[in-house]
Every structure is written in structure tokens, then in C-alpha cells.
Design a protein around this nucleic acid. Structure first.
Lengths: 153, 153
DNA sequence: GCAACCAAGTTGAAAATTCAACTATTCCTG
DNA sequence: CAGGAATAGTTGAATTTTCAACTTGGTTGC
């Protein structure tokens, strides 16, 4: 049995600052989006990814991957978005198992409005609060983390 | 109506890297803790905060604050931890409305074991993956963000 | 000392998420 | 090309989280 390598004081401080800050930021952005547009961040993310995809549609599995969600969760969430008329499901001709999720015109218009407020909040509580060099450090760091996590799967 | 100030390409890249990386990291740490010890990060956080408090106990409201959780959520979660015997509730003499959540002996022992694995995972997927200077930048940045969010309330 | 207000905490229902099957289809391998 | 393994996606139940009351007790102004 190996001795656990604890974090040193500075590492612990930084890690904890991150946990607290990220939870509070996510909470605030979620509430903001929900109160103004009735969307959660996860739903917003789905709409964004669809809006950027060719023909504004993606296979469910691919959408789950880029939106960092489980397939089950995506399935439920897309059903909700479908009820609101923001997304539509279509069968995929090539693979009969496959399903495309497609952003509707309404969905695109809705997203365009929500994005304005969301980006403003991201600025106000993230981008504009952080030193530009630190922002780059965050980009680097979380790219490396995402890679590391992906490698573990 | 003002023109929305969109993020520039680099800001957008960094923001998105952060969103993706943080979601995936949280997901992994949650699964790790859950599979090895049956705890979520939120529950773990509660136990940690209690373990560090004088007499290993805190008033519910204070615990909610330091653990970045709503009072309602905390109330439910503490009930679950109470069922597992890790936490106990005691009335507060001074304020009859008040309730202390207190870490039990079992809770402390349990946390001691869980912490070893959790810290190892935090190292493996966060601390050791990030350049030390970038880690400091993250600490700075999320401290500022937490302050900014707190100021908005 | 009482009326109005505020703070602490809980509760139960509604909404969201996870988990473990399950169906249907495609891929692979002998 | 048959049969098993793997992939896509959904479903429903269990768990967790959110939301809006609600109860109880403390505080303040008069």
C-alpha cells in the first residue's frame, strides 16, 4: 500500500477555488438562462451544437458526444426540446437504427435570442472577470484535462 | 438596444474548452467517487466541510453556504447521509430554529478512506495534467469569478 | 407585549438525471 | 451467410435536484 500523495497547500487552495467558483458560475448561468429563456445550459449546448452542424442536424450519438452528455440523458432532453418545437427528430436513411436531431427554424430563432443574453452573462461573470492571460491558461488546462479524461475511458 | 458583444475567436475557444473540460472532469470524479465509495461530489464536499469545522459540526445554513448548495438540497442530502450514519443532526440550544449537522465517528472514518482515492483522482486528472503556472492561474481566476458571482446576489 | 416582518430549516411535488434493461439494426468472423 | 457481438437509440423506474410553500422561532418598531 502506497502512501497517498496529498496536495500541497497551494494546490489545494487552487483546486478548491476552482470547485467553488465553477459550481457557483454554472449555477448562476443556469438560473440566468432558465429565468430568461426557460433553458438549462445542457439544453442550450444542444441547440448550439446543432446550429453549427451541417444542415443543422446531427446523429444522436454524435450530438451526445459533442455535448458531453449520456445518450439516455440526450434522448430525454431532445424529447423535451421536441415538445417545445425547437428540435425535430428524423430517421436516418443510411442506417435504419439512426436518428437525426435537427434544429427547427423556431429553434434557430429561439437560440439566436437566448445566445445574446447568455454571451452577455458569460462575459460579465467569466471572460471580463478573468485576466486575459489567465483565460488562455484555462483554455490550455481544460483542453489537457478533457484529453486526459478521454484517454481514461 | 445595444449590439451584443460577441466573444472573439480565442475567447470562445477558451470558454468552450473550459465548459467541456469541466463537465467531463466533474463527471469522471463523480463516477469514481460513486463507484468506489457510493458518494457524489456534493456529498463528499459536505463531509469535508464538516470534518474541518470546530467540533466537526456546522449549522445547516452555514454548511449550505460553504458547500455551495441550496438549503433545500442540503436538507435532503443530509437526510440521506444521516441514513447512512455518516452525519447526525442535533438541535442548537441557542437558536431553537437552528440545527447542527455533525460528522459522526463513522463518517470521519469513511471520509478518511474516500479522501485517499478522491485526491488520487484529482491529481491524476487535474493537478498532474495542468502546468503549475496554469494551476495558479485557475486558482486566481475562479476566486475572482466566485467573488463576482457573490457580488451579483 | 404585540404585530409585522425576517431567518432557519423542512417538506412534498415536479422536473431532471441516472441506471439498467430492452428493441432493432449493423458489423464481424468463421 | 449464419450467428454472435457490437452499435444506435429509447424507455421506465429509481434517484437526485429544484421549486414553492409551509412551520417555527427570532427581531424590530411602536
Amino acid at each position: 500500500m502506497t502512501e497517498p500523495r496529498w496536495l500541497d497547500a497551494a494546490q489545494q487552495r487552487d483546486w478548491r477555488a476552482y470547485v467553488e467558483g465553477s459550481v457557483r458560475l454554472a449555477d448562476l448561468l443556469d438560473r440566468d438562462l432558465k429565468s430568461k429563456h426557460g433553458l438549462t445550459m445542457a439544453e442550450y449546448e444542444i441547440l448550439v451544437r446543432l446550429s453549427e452542424a451541417p444542415e443543422r442536424r446531427l446523429r444522436m450519438a454524435e450530438l451526445a458526444e459533442v455535448a458531453s452528455q449520456s445518450r439516455s440523458r440526450l434522448s430525454h432532453t431532445v424529447s423535451r426540446l421536441e415538445c417545445k418545437g425547437l428540435v425535430a427528430r428524423n430517421n436516418c436513411g443510411a442506417d435504419k437504427r439512426g436518428v437525426f436531431a435537427e434544429l427547427t427554424e423556431d429553434g434557430f430563432a429561439f437560440l439566436s435570442k437566448a445566445a445574446v443574453d447568455h454571451v452577455a452573462a458569460v462575459r460579465e461573470f467569466f471572460v471580463d472577470v478573468v485576466d486575459p492571460a489567465d483565460l488562455q491558461a484555462i483554455g490550455r488546462a481544460f483542453t489537457a484535462i478533457a484529453d486526459r479524461v478521454a484517454k481514461a475511458r
